Simulated assay, not measured.
Amino acid sequence: MTDTLHDVRSPGWAADPPVVMLFLHGFGANEHDLPGLAPALGLDLPWASLRAPLDLGGGAAWFAVTTPGSPDPWVVEAATDTIWQWVEVHLHAETLVVPIGFSQGGLMATQLLRTRPDRVLAPVVLAGFVLGAPQPADGALADSRPPAFWGRGAEDRVIAAPAVARTASWLPLHTSLTGRVYPGLAHGIHAAEVAEVRDFLAEHVGGNRR
């Protein structure tokens, strides 16, 4: 892994935006995978989309897959650190991030929340899951219960069942969860899901609506 993450950013990127959407792609994709969602999410916010640090040759990953749904904590924590390093270099110290992650990127969105919740606003987890190991802010989150969105397909066979069960247990105890399961959807993103994410963000990221 490298400490420097490549990124693409929204046109007219501001020097010190108060809030930024942070797109975090899934295994084997790249930084160009998720920004197409930005117009449909309905927020007048700058965005950045990060390329994961593990080069797969044509794509990238936040960490190597060993046991599906149960990655080694240290590799996930190292990837989390690389995202925070990017934030510290490219964003103002008071800028909040709205992490929107798919699959592995969804796990990384929850990692940002579980490590530095003071910098995270309304994380969106699409077909993702949470790490099984305790994280630094878990106790604080159990008290504060910030808003979070978790959507997944009822027919998703990529995310292992134990990871889904772990996430279904952890999120309601540590967030004010908006959870959705989409019938007929496999490992992907549903149009109805995008609409519900838009509503979720409109409610919880106020003052930046289109």
Rank of each mutant, 00 (worst) to 15 (best):
L5C: 03
H6V: 11
R9Y: 08
S10Y: 03
P17L: 09
P18Y: 03
V19M: 02
F23P: 00
L24R: 00
F27Y: 13
G28W: 06
D33E: 15
A38T: 04
P39E: 01
A40C: 06
D44M: 09
W47N: 00
A48F: 02
L50M: 02
L50V: 02
P53H: 11
G58C: 07
A60Y: 14
A61C: 00
P68M: 09
E77V: 14
A78W: 13
D81M: 11
I83W: 01
W84M: 10
Q85C: 10
E94A: 15
L96N: 04
F102K: 02
G105K: 02
Q111E: 15
L112K: 00
T115G: 04
P117Q: 01
D118W: 08
V125D: 07
A127H: 00
P134W: 06
A137K: 05
D138P: 02
L141D: 03
R145C: 12
A148F: 06
G151H: 01
G153H: 12
A154F: 09
A154I: 07
A154Q: 12
E155W: 13
D156K: 06
R157C: 11
V158K: 05
A163M: 10
R166H: 10
R166D: 06
L173N: 09
L177S: 06
L177A: 11
T178N: 09
L185V: 13
H187S: 07
G188I: 11
I189S: 10
H190K: 14
E193N: 05
E196V: 09
R198Y: 11
F200I: 11
E203C: 06
V205C: 04
V205W: 03
R209W: 05
